[in-house]
C-alpha cells in the first residue's frame, strides 16, 4: 500500500501551495490583520512543521538508498526546525527576528540535500531535471528568509519566499514517473517505460 513516489511529491506540493497562499495573504493584509484571529498566525508555521513530521514517514518508507534516507531526514529536520521557530515567533516566545535564519538554513541544507540525493546528471530525465531546479531554487531563495531575519517587515522578502513556495509546488506537481522532459534532446535517453 506504499504510494508511488510521484504521488508523495504531489501531496507535498499541496503543502507548499498552502504555505505560499498563506504568506501572500499575510503580506497583502499586513501582520496586524493577519494576527487578529488567534489561530491564524500559527497556520502556515504549523503546516511547515506537520510537513516535516510527514517527511519522517517518507524517510522510513522510501529507503531507495542511504543518500535518500539522509536527504529525507535532513528535509524533515529542516522543516520541523523552521516550523518550530516560526511558531515560537508567532506565539511571542521567541522575539528576535533572527530566528527566521532557521528557515534560511533549512532551505540551504534542504536544497543541498536535494541536489546531492539526485546525483544523476541526466538533465533530460524529468526527475533529475526537476530535482536540480528544486535544489538550486531552494538554495538561491534562501536569501529571502535571511533577508527577513534582518528586515522582518519587508514585503519583497516575504513575497520572494512565497514565490519560492509556489515554484516548489509547481515543480513538485510536475513530477511523474513515466514521462521524459527533454528526452528528445539526448541520444542517451531511452523511451519511457509506462507503469
Amino acid at each position: 500500500m506504499q504510494p508511488p513516489p510521484e504521488v508523495v511529491h504531489w501531496l507535498f506540493a499541496l503543502g507548499f501551495l498552502m504555505l505560499g497562499l498563506c504568506l501572500v495573504c499575510e503580506v497583502a493584509v499586513g501582520p496586524e490583520v493577519w494576527r487578529k484571529h488567534g489561530w491564524r498566525p500559527y497556520l502556515w508555521p504549523t503546516f511547515l512543521f506537520v510537513m516535516g513530521l510527514f517527511m519522517w514517514a517518507v524517510m522510513v518508507f522510501f529507503t531507495n538508498s542511504t543518500v535518500h534516507l539522509i536527504a529525507h531526514g535532513l528535509w524533515a529536520q529542516g522543516m520541523m526546525i523552521g516550523g518550530v521557530c516560526l511558531l515560537g515567533l508567532a506565539r511571542g516566545k521567541l522575539r528576535s527576528p533572527l530566528w527566521m535564519l532557521s528557515v534560511g538554513l533549512a532551505l540551504l541544507v534542504g536544497g543541498g540535500a536535494t541536489l546531492v540525493h539526485e546525483s544523476q546528471g541526466w538533465l533530460f530525465n524529468r526527475s533529475s531535471f526537476l530535482h536540480h531546479v528544486e535544489g538550486w531554487s531552494a538554495i538561491g531563495a534562501s536569501v529571502f528568509p535571511i533577508g527577513l531575519s534582518l528586515r522582518p517587515r519587508s514585503r519583497v522578502f516575504s513575497l520572494g519566499l512565497a514565490a519560492l513556495f509556489f515554484a516548489l509546488a509547481i515543480l513538485l506537481l510536475c513530477h511523474r514517473d513515466a514521462a521524459p522532459i527533454f528526452g528528445h534532446m539526448s541520444p542517451d535517453a531511452r523511451p519511457p517505460v509506462a507503469r
Partner: peptide, 26 residues
C-alpha cells in the same frame, strides 16, 4: 490523489476557511 482536483479543492477550502474570515477582519 488526483493532483488537479486537489489543487481545485485547496483553492476552494482556502477561500472558505482562510480568505473569507480574513476579508471580514480586514
Amino acid at each position: 490523489v488526483e493532483a488537479p482536483l486537489l489543487v481545485i479543492a485547496l483553492g476552494v477550502l482556502f477561500t472558505a476557511f482562510v480568505a473569507r474570515p480574513l476579508l471580514h477582519d480586514l
